[in-house]
Design a protein around this nucleic acid. Structure first.
Lengths: 203, 203
DNA sequence: CTGTGATTTGACCAGATGGTTAAACTGTGT
DNA sequence: ACACAGTTTAACCATCTGGTCAAATCACAG
């Protein structure tokens, strides 16, 4: 389903990613991963010592994907509103491409927060630069003054939550009409941007 | 930890709730539930035929708690802005009292959406009345015109997501300072209300 | 007291699961 | 052709887990 499947290790990583994302660490079965990779179960232990180690490898890659470095998202000097639009565009594009990320990460983070903490440190993710940019925009009067931490959480909530709650939205809002649900998610990029900008613009 | 613990069935329900919420359906162990209830494991099967049946009983109660009837939240004739404030107040109060609800429900909904669908129907939950109230407020010009479904998802996202992502917020935003995290959550009621009202008010 | 049905328990079972191991296979350099 | 290291496999193991059951205990009507 993904990239190169030539060598065994990549076949395992690819299969493990699919199974872990679908079933989670606890729900996944080593035999199922072996089947998906088309190899013998013992090979999983040959390449990765244990289920935990294999999961670590997958989870680390996924955290790196979902917590991008700030430099990768922010462009240099532009109005703050453009920056907000850009960050929402970029992150919702990422989530549309990997809609399973929020539910998977939330599940695993709540199961074992300490593992997540280590990975955040390992990938060098920090929220400070974002808070600084937000605060500076407030100082310049580009946006209204408010607690920047709450603003960040507001925006991330609106971006991420609907993906984690996709089955709920699909059923409660659209009676399991998959096309309507899909259309709704495609609209959200514009809707979130408009909502946020209206909330933070002066006057 | 909860209500009456006199009869065995209630002891089981109470213990099962604690364990299921902490570990989820898959992570929970019948033996652990029995220990928590201070009874023999076979009694679990005597009162509830199987783990699935026991989980159903717990999950149903929790869905009923998290998806309140509309009448229970909305007061009759008041300005729409007051209604929004009231719904945010009420729901954030509920979540502050049961902060585990979002993570637990999201996990189980994504594990088995069909069970969740049945429970939503069983509890007679419907989003239609809310959408109607929102649309009427737009018709009266009380708030700006926008897609009411997106507005509802915006508000629910900002209310619910931070609880599901509490470990992330606790670490990334507050370096595991529990008091700071707690204070942040107590601020959110005001912050969400202000943000939403600013985004939807005319002018 | 005594009988009877509901409740409770310890012992047990079958199946699943992560993990191990010895043997077999593969390819490559000499 | 052969040796040797890396790779792959089938069979196996220990443990855990949901579930069952017969026996024991309890509560209460007669």
């Amino acid at each position: 389903m993904n990239t190169k499947k030539d060598n065994t290790e990549d076949k395992i990583l690819d299969a493990a990613k699919n199974v872990f994302i679908k079933k989670g660490m606890e729900g996944a079965r080593m035999q199922e991963i072996a089947n998906e990779a088309g190899i013998n179960k013992a090979l999983l232990h040959y390449y990765f010592r244990s289920k935990d180690k294999l999961f670590d490898a997958i989870f680390s890659k996924i955290i790196g994907l979902a917590f991008p470095k700030i430099g990768q998202i922010f462009q240099a000097d532009q109005p703050f509103v453009s920056k907000v639009e850009q960050i929402i565009d970029t992150y919702l594009d990422l989530l549309m491409k990997h809609p399973y990320l929020p539910a998977f990460i939330l599940k695993e983070v709540n199961r074992d927060p300490s593992m997540f903490f280590k990975l955040v440190l390992k990938h060098g993710f920090s929220i400070a630069p974002i808070l600084k940019i937000v605060t500076e925009a407030m100082d310049r009067g580009e946006i209204i003054r408010m607690n920047p931490q709450h603003l960040v959480v507001h925006v991330l909530s609106m971006c991420i939550f609907p993906f984690a709650a996709k089955p709920v939205i699909n059923f409660v809002l659209f009676n399991e009409d998959k096309q309507a649900t899909q259309a709704f998610f495609e609209e959200r990029k514009q809707e979130v941007k408009a909502f946020v900008i209206r909330a933070i613009s002066p006057e």
